[in-house]
Each structure stands twice: as C-alpha cells, then as structure tokens.
Design a binder for these strands. Structure first.
Lengths: 247, 247
DNA sequence: CGAGTTATTGAACTGCCTCAAGGTGTGTGG
DNA sequence: CCACACACCTTGAGGCAGTTCAATAACTCG
C-alpha cells in the first residue's frame, strides 16, 4: 500500500468497487468487452482509497507497485529538482490514471497530491499486465492511455516553447474546460482546484504572471474570475488567443 | 507503408532483419527470453527502411499503423502548430522507438524527419500487441519504453519551466552524452545532428540564444564547439551548471 | 565555384521575473 | 460565532534574461 496516510483510509471492497459495475466504466475502460472479459475485470482493482485534500497519494522514490485510477477528485503530480524547485507535471481528474511515469524505473518519479478530497482505485500493475494478456482490448486501451499522456506532455512543451503568458493560460483553461465537459460538468463554469503557483509551475510561469494574465483576460471580458471560480464568457475569443489571431 | 519516399527505399528482409539475431537486441528488446519466445520475435519486424537525411519517416496526420525502431541514424520529431511554428518534441537515436504518440488517436501527431541517413525497422503495432500477449516480458518492456518517454518529457518540461538558457544547454548536452555512451560512442566527443534552431525549439529558446549559450560555455572552457562538433571538456562543471551550484 | 542554408555576434527592446506591499479568503481554536 | 493566523491572491515598479532585428561569416552541396 502506498503510504501510511492511505493505509488508514482504505475502503473495503464492495460490489461498487468492481470495474464491471462502476459508473465510470466508459471513461476508464474500453467499450465492447464481452461477458467473459467483463468477468475477468473483477480482479483488476485491489482497493479503493480515500485521500484528503493536501495528502500524498505517493511520494517520489517510492517503489512502484500499482497505478491509481482517479475515481473522483483532483490531483497534481510534480517532480522536485536538485535545488528544491517544484515542477508540476500534470493535473488529473476523474477517470485518469496516475503513476504511468513510474513503470520505466520501477520507482515513482513524481509526488502526487490530492487537491481536493478524492478517491482512487488501486490497480496493481502486475495484475493489469496479466489481465491485459487475456483481454486484448484492455491492453490496447492501456496503450492508448499512455500514448495520450505523451501527447498531452507534447502540448505542454509546445506551450512552454513558444507561447506568451496569456496564450498559455487560454490553452490551459480550454483544456480544463474540455475535460470537465467530457465528465458531464459545466465547460464554462468551474473551480480551479490548484493555486496560481501550481498553474504557473505547470505552464512555466511565475504566480504573479498567472495572476496578471488572468486579470487581463477578465478585463477583456473573455473570462470572469473570482478567486478559484472561473467562468469562460467567450470561448471563441479564448481559443483565438491561442492561434495568434488578433481578433 | 509510411509514404512514397519510403516505399522506394525499403530493404528486403534478410536474416539480419530478424530481431533474434539483431546486433541491437540488448538496446531494443528485453533480456531473458527463452528459445520459443525468441522464435516468436521473428515475425515482429515487417521491413527495414532507409531514410535519407532530410526525408520524412512519417507526417503528422497520417494514419497510424506501425511504430519504427531506429536501427541506425538520428531523427527528430516535431509538431506544427496552428500558426506554423515548429516545436521539436524529441530527438531519437539507435534503438529508440518512434511513433508512440500516435497510438492514442490512431493518427501520427508529429512529423518525423531523419537528421542523417538512417535505417528504421517497421513494427506493425497490431503485431506488437499480438506477440506481446505471448511474451509477457516483451509487453512489460514496451510499457517501460512508453513510460520512459513520459519521464523524458517531464524532464524537458522541468528544463523549460525553471532553467536558464545555459542550464538547459548543459542538461541537453549531458543527456546526449549519456545516450551516446550507452551505445558505445564517445560520451565527450560527438556531432550535433540538429541545427541550433532545432535545439532551441526543443529547449524553448531562440536559435541565437542557443548559439550564445554554447559560445559562453566554450569561453568558460567547459566545452569546445566547432559548428556541429562538440567536445565536453569538463563534465563535472557541466553537470554543476544544472544543479545551480556556482562552481 | 556559387547559392542557399546555418551559425555567430552586436545592439536595442520587451515580456516576464523579482521584490515588495497590501488585500482577500479560509479554517481553526477559543 | 468571532477573531486571529496563515495561506493565497492582486497589483505596482524596476530590472534583466532572452528575444528581435540586423549584418556578417562560415559551411554545405549541387
């Protein structure tokens, strides 16, 4: 089990913790499994854990045993570098998979922290690989998830490489918006679970720059921002920020 | 097959194009396969292709069918954004795997271009997944490769997020150095296959800044650079550039 | 050899960072 | 429920690293 904090908060297996009957199946798992395959899934999840806001799911350096699927809530992962700076490498919401970076070295390379009270499903990696052999669709689905992570990272590199602060923020907000929409939440009205500093770290900016850019977007009427609450008033203009069009 | 240019340059299958007897086996493939498993590998590679300097291996948008293992040579991949800017997302050398980003959407998201005359082994992805089912070690190895790509991308995000130009260059050179060393080439003396602009794009800098930073490192005696030829004179000081130590 | 690409270097500019001060929100303990 | 402490956010002013623009030099390859 990941660490002491979690040990105290694990949730006993119930019918609901079976993937087969999970309400998130369509987000987490491939579609089109037959009955036998669905039956096999029963063994995939070990436990569910409750992680409270501010708690670590795992620390960098910890031996890698399991991936964790976000059942609900919101996480960040970040790497600490030699001189103590924190680089946020990703934000994760319902249905997304945590710990993929750890497969290569068999150690976690990130700290992963809940940004709100959350629940995760523990997926022992050995089991995932085992069951994958029996369910080609599951294997393929897993490959797609890893690939998606790579694509997402490339998008961030792209932002950091050549975009101005305001453009990065626009892209960031739109990305969140889409992901919320996919989960049935409002795409125009949501809460930023992370701090300005965390946003800045993720986008390669300082927190003051994040704050100023958000204020600017608000002055332009494109968004309304009140502390952690954002409303996207004009998605069209917001997305045109990114493409470098002037209107 | 990937595109017209390649069609003309494919190399007929020979004994040498079997993974089982390939000289790169230790770089490409997991160790510890038994005879049966090694036999199964025979079917993994479709063709080898010769790609000349400047030619594309594949273009962004192309339907995804295969991954490509670099047999020898050097590649870059890059994404083009809406207003035509090019972001280099990675450099790839012998034994590394190209096209991982394409799995998620079943379309290539990068252009991938040879920076010197190169050869690649085509690995049809369906076949890879099929054979993986029969060879757990191969599946696991593949997962590690994907994970390594994620870790590498995080390292770049880290550089872009909080490092100064000279530090980024130092990290870049050391990364190349290690990868060359692992392949039996000199770790202190190598050729930069890519242009200053490509380095800059990869690291989130302009080509002039790359040039200036390299010149600075040379003035300090840490490296010697002559056009594309680099010599790392003082790896110790070079690595201390990164950690933010002052000496 | 010559045309085009790539690299170096200089000078001026600018967007982001740094430092600083004050404001707002949140959660905890009395 | 209030008050206090702490964490987070906003805004301003000034500085600087890296960009932009420009001119020249060096290399590459037909």
């Amino acid at each position: 089990m990941p660490n002491h904090a979690i040990a105290k908060n694990y949730i006993v297996s119930t019918a609901e913790s079976k993937c087969a009957t999970c309400s998130l199946r369509e987000i987490c798992l491939p579609v089109g499994l037959d009955e036998d395959e669905t039956e096999l899934l029963g063994n995939l999840i070990n436990h569910k854990y409750r992680i409270r806001r501010g708690e670590h799911l795992f620390h960098a350096g910890l031996a890698f045993k399991s991936l964790y699927a976000v059942r609900n809530g919101f996480f960040k992962s970040c790497v600490l570098d030699s001189d103590g700076r924190q680089q946020v490498t990703g934000f994760y919401m319902t249905g997304e998979l945590l710990g993929l970076d750890a497969i290569s070295s068999e150690k976690h390379t990130c700290d992963t922290v809940a940004l709100e009270d959350s629940e995760v499903c523990e997926v022992p990696f050995i089991k995932l690989e085992e069951i994958s052999r029996r369910i080609p669709l599951l294997m393929h689905h897993f490959h797609k998830i890893m690939s998606r992570e790579i694509v997402q990272d490339h998008a961030i590199m792209m932002l950091m490489g050549g975009r101005k602060a305001e453009e990065r923020l626009a892209a960031f907000l739109l990305n969140l918006s889409e992901r919320f929409a996919k989960r049935g939440y409002s795409s125009t009205n949501f809460i930023l679970r992370m701090t300005r500093e965390e946003i800045g770290s993720y986008l390669g900016l300082k927190l003051e720059t994040v704050s100023r850019s958000l204020s600017r977007l608000q002055e332009e009427g494109i968004i309304t921002i009140n502390n952690k609450n954002v409303r996207l008033n004009d998605i069209y203009r917001l997305s045109h920020k990114i493409s470098g069009y002037s209107d």
